[in-house]
């Protein structure tokens, strides 16, 4: 397959950019419409596949970038040996989950859901740049507010926050009062029976 001018422009832009390029940026830089960009992306990935390349264009953190296929993880990881941090602990993942769905939120909010002290988990997540301090809550003590970062989206391969798993379900649960939740539980049980 021979790529046309637009597809090659898109490929060049994504290759050279140091951050994910959004559809809007791609449209702007190439002077094309969204549909043409999507088709161009398909053509590029088609060409990569056709020739069994080890890379492809993926959508992550609100934009597109070139990424290696996961089967080459072992080979590529040698480049970053000793530098790439280990996997996140369960405590860190749980804390991150709560922050992701209720951001911006305080440490207290996370702790009330997890039922344990989250100091060290939050520190780890800040160090790994998965979360950042996004402000202070205007209540007594002015506690710090935490939000997730783009690093978080990239790390977990999420395109944006709306693509968090079961986003709507959690939103609903979080906004419910205990009595409402109970009503819903009863309803669900009846469905189960």
């Amino acid at each position: 397959m021979i790529l046309d001018r637009l597809a090659r422009e898109v490929e060049a832009l994504i290759f050279a950019s140091d951050e994910p390029l959004s559809i809007r940026q791609l449209c702007e830089y190439t002077g094309s419409g969204e549909d043409s960009i999507h088709q161009a992306l398909d053509r590029i990935n088609g060409a990569f596949r056709e020739q069994h390349h080890a890379v492809g264009i993926i959508e992550v953190a609100g934009g597109f970038r070139i990424a290696t296929e996961s089967e080459f993880g072992d080979v590529v990881s040698q480049l970053f040996e000793g530098r790439k941090p280990g996997k996140l602990s369960r405590a860190a993942l749980e804390t991150l989950a709560v922050v992701a769905y209720s951001q911006p939120c305080t440490r207290m909010a996370v702790e009330s859901i997890r039922g344990v002290n989250c100091d060290s988990a939050i520190r780890t997540l800040l160090e790994r740049e998965m979360i950042r301090i996004s402000g202070r809550m205007e209540t007594p003590g002015r506690p710090l507010l935490y939000s997730t970062t783009r690093t978080f989206l990239e790390y977990f391969g999420l395109t944006d926050l709306d693509h968090l798993p079961r986003y709507e379900e959690i939103e609903e649960l979080l906004s419910m009062s205990p009595s409402e939740m109970e009503e819903r539980d009863l309803f669900e049980r009846r469905e189960d029976d």
Binding site: F15, V55, I58, V60, R65, I66, A67, T68, E69, S70, E71, F72, G73, D74, V76, S77, K87, L88, R90, L93, E94, L96, A97, V98, Y101, I113, R114, E154, Y155, F156, G157, L158, L164, P165, R166, E169, I170, L173
Partner: peptide, 22 residues
């Protein structure tokens, strides 16, 4: 629910840790 989400995140981490971008 959040514990389940954390598990899902862990699976994503597993997948995405092998993918490198440039």
């Amino acid at each position: 629910t959040f514990r389940e989400i954390a598990e899902e995140l862990q699976r994503s981490e597993e997948t995405w840790t092998d993918i490198y971008t440039s």
